[in-house]
């Protein structure tokens, strides 16, 4: 009886603690986003830094994004061949490869790679700045850390991730075609016919809308967690890990939500 009471009490405490923590995060996150919206007018401060960050993030991530997209295109092509050969006309491969890359693989894989790559970087950079009092120092100099540190990072991501997604889409489709050509003997004319047959210009917009939403998740969440890091090196490590996990999970959740919305639109 006593044990049961303890377990119930612990459960209540646990739920209470989790609820408080969730409310705390929600409040802080909302204030951070509001502060960022308030800082939009101060473009003279964040714009030059945004381009600096975008250059670093864009160039640095291009190779890995294209590599992964290329492999994704190749695997999609091989699996399509494995499943459809003999049952469907060959030109269907063109449709499957291009549509899978544009609607799903391009945006999601790019966002997941960048959630790991720049998400970890942002959280670690801002976390280190927080625990070494550099953010406090910036504030004490009358400068806003939101416009000096956070907005350039977030905007750089929002600028670069959709562009990288488009490159990833193109690379995946091209590699997918060459793989299909090698393994299935698919001709360019068949591939193009299949790709064009099912393609709607709106698909590209979907891809772009998805990538913008993913970009926001892959940058704002790590920035928030790094900005609020505490307790020295351990805190920075925790913030970095949490940032990558939270950003990745958010991207996957957003993927479901946006896909449902997009299908509804269709």
């Amino acid at each position: 009886m006593a044990r049961r009471a303890t377990i119930t009490l612990d459960l209540r405490r646990l739920v209470g603690r989790w609820s408080l923590r969730a409310a705390d995060h929600t409040g802080r996150f909302t204030f951070l986003v509001l502060d960022m919206l308030r800082g939009v007018a101060e473009w003279r401060i964040y714009l030059p830094r945004t381009f600096e960050q975008a250059q670093q993030v864009g160039y640095g991530s291009l190779f890995i994004v294209l590599l992964v997209a290329g492999f994704a295109g190749a695997v999609t092509s091989l699996q399509t061949g494995y499943q459809f050969t003999g049952t469907l006309p060959l030109y269907y491969a063109g449709a499957v490869i291009s549509e899978s890359m544009i609607l799903e693989l391009g945006p999601v894989l790019t966002a997941l790679i960048l959630a790991g790559r720049i998400g970890a970087r942002y959280a670690a950079e801002l976390g280190s700045m927080r625990v070494t009092e550099q953010i406090d120092a910036l504030e004490s100099l009358g400068r806003s850390p939101i416009t000096h540190l956070l907005m350039p990072r977030v905007f750089a991501g929002i600028l670069v991730i959709p562009a990288l997604t488009m490159f990833a889409n193109a690379t995946g489709i091209v590699v997918g075609f060459f793989t299909a050509k090698g393994s299935l003997g698919l001709t360019y004319a068949d591939f193009e016919y299949g790709a064009r047959y099912f393609f709607r210009p709106l698909d590209l917009w979907y891809s772009l809308v998805k990538s913008y939403c993913f970009a926001a998740a892959a940058t704002v969440i790590p920035c928030y967690l790094g900005f609020n890091a505490q307790q020295g090196a351990e805190g920075v490590g925790r913030a970095t890990t949490t940032a990558v996990v939270s950003a990745s999970v958010s991207i996957l959740l957003l993927d479901v939500v946006i896909t449902q919305l997009l299908l509804g639109v269709k």
Binding site: E133, Q134, E139, S140, G142, R143
Partner: peptide
């Protein structure tokens, strides 16, 4: 922010911006 421009704050461990040179730190 205006008030802080009248208050100089010397941090315990310097809190210098490590990605910036000394010149850039002081200029800030």
């Amino acid at each position: 922010q205006q008030l802080r421009s009248k208050i100089g704050y010397v941090f315990q461990y310097g809190a210098l911006f490590d990605s910036m040179s000394v010149y850039e730190n002081i200029r800030l």
